Simulated assay, not measured.
Amino acid sequence: MRLLYIIFIFLFCTVNAQKALPLDTLKLKEAKDMLADDYGNLYIYKNKDFSFTKYDSLGKQLGKMMLTVPYKVQSVQNPLSLALFSENAQEMKFVDQNMNEIQKVDFKQKFGFIKMAYAEDLQQLWLLDDSTKRLIQYNFRNDTTINSYPFDVSFDDMMDLLVFETKVYILTRKHIRVFSLKFEKLFEAPLENGKRFRRENDVVLVVADNSILKYDPEKGMVKIFEDKDAQIVDKNILSYFEIKANKLYLYNLEKIKETKLQTEPDTKPTTAPVTESSSEKPAGEEGNKAHDEKKESEEKATDNTLQKLIEDSSEVQAVGV
């Protein structure tokens, strides 16, 4: 009975929150990465031909870049200026909403070997220089180095970099680490298959292969979305996105919240556990009768809750997402 109850809750949440988006499976088949901006546009990066393509939510292509070497897309939260870094080319590109290059910053002439770059805004970059083991704050608009900090960390398996409020977030293949600008380690936790950071106001998120986690200074890394069958996941301010079996799915954040509010009261025990003293326990025939009545009442309450959940689930399936 309890197993059926859990299954129906899962079905109800899935039906209510999930929606398939009409993007051609051929466009998703060879995707190495997917990002979603806050307007619902999708960006597909393919390693096979180093292409970076922008689509709207209906699958219409809005722009495309053909790159000559691999680039790492930092973020698409501001679709008017997307930052792409290439370790191979030792440069960072900025592209506009039509996927046209609007600026390029070349690191070869001024620095040693830049392992990772983070664009804080439209003026400043944070650079990890592997040759000098330093973290550099660089204003690329006027070509000046603002600050330089000793940062003697391993650069070998680094995946991403983020600097926010005097904290440096380092993502490797198997860990997340947080440092102060004085190179003091503030936090470290194991994290498998992390790909990049995403910052939403003062919240720092990590996007992994099939999950999204939130950094909490008190609780550590908190998983907020996961689908073990997904190939790629991402989110914007309104939804989670995933590619699964070469199909694109969207999970609306508001609907997920509403579903949790609807199902939460039903998931609580129908009767609170009671601890009885020996003097209060029923004895003999009267005690057995009271026990049987209590058991029957609990079963009825559970059946009524399950019936309500089945009816709610049927209504949602009839209406659709």
Rank of each mutant, 00 (worst) to 15 (best):
S279M: 12
N246I: 02
Y138V: 09
E293K: 00
M159Y: 04
N41L: 05
Q77F: 10
F183V: 06
T271L: 01
K104T: 14
S148L: 13
D292F: 04
K255E: 13
K19G: 05
R2I: 03
K167D: 12
I102N: 06
G284I: 10
V95Y: 12
T145M: 15
E120M: 11
R177D: 15
Y45P: 14
T302D: 01
M99Y: 01
E258H: 08
T271N: 02
V15K: 05
D130V: 00
Y240A: 13
K235W: 14
F52T: 07
K19C: 04
R2F: 06
A117G: 08
I9E: 12
M1S: 04
Y118Q: 05
S75E: 14
Y240C: 05
A119Q: 01
E286A: 01
K294A: 00
Q137E: 15
A189M: 05
L26M: 03
M116N: 10
K295I: 10
T271H: 00
V153Q: 12
N16G: 06
E276Y: 09
F113T: 15
S211Q: 08
K27V: 15
L21C: 10
N147D: 15
A89K: 06
K174Q: 14
F94D: 05
A89M: 09
G284K: 07
K268F: 09
K219F: 08
L21M: 13
D56I: 05
V222G: 02
G194R: 00
L162W: 12
T145H: 02
I146K: 09
N201C: 03
L42D: 06
N246T: 04
L306D: 07
S314K: 11
E101Q: 14
I44F: 03
N288T: 03
L186I: 07
K247D: 11
N100L: 08
D33S: 02
L171R: 03
D227L: 00
P150D: 12
Y45H: 09
L11H: 01
D266W: 10
K219S: 09
L250H: 13
N252F: 02
P269D: 02
K110E: 02
P273N: 04
I6E: 10
N210A: 08
L309T: 05
A245I: 03
D37C: 07
S148D: 15
V233G: 01
V204N: 01
T166S: 14
S57Y: 12
V153P: 10
D229Q: 08
N210E: 11
D129C: 00
V105N: 04
K27H: 11
T270L: 03
N304I: 08
L238S: 12
S86N: 04
S51G: 06
K104L: 07
K108N: 14
V163H: 12
V316I: 09
K260N: 13
R198A: 10
L82T: 15
K27Y: 09
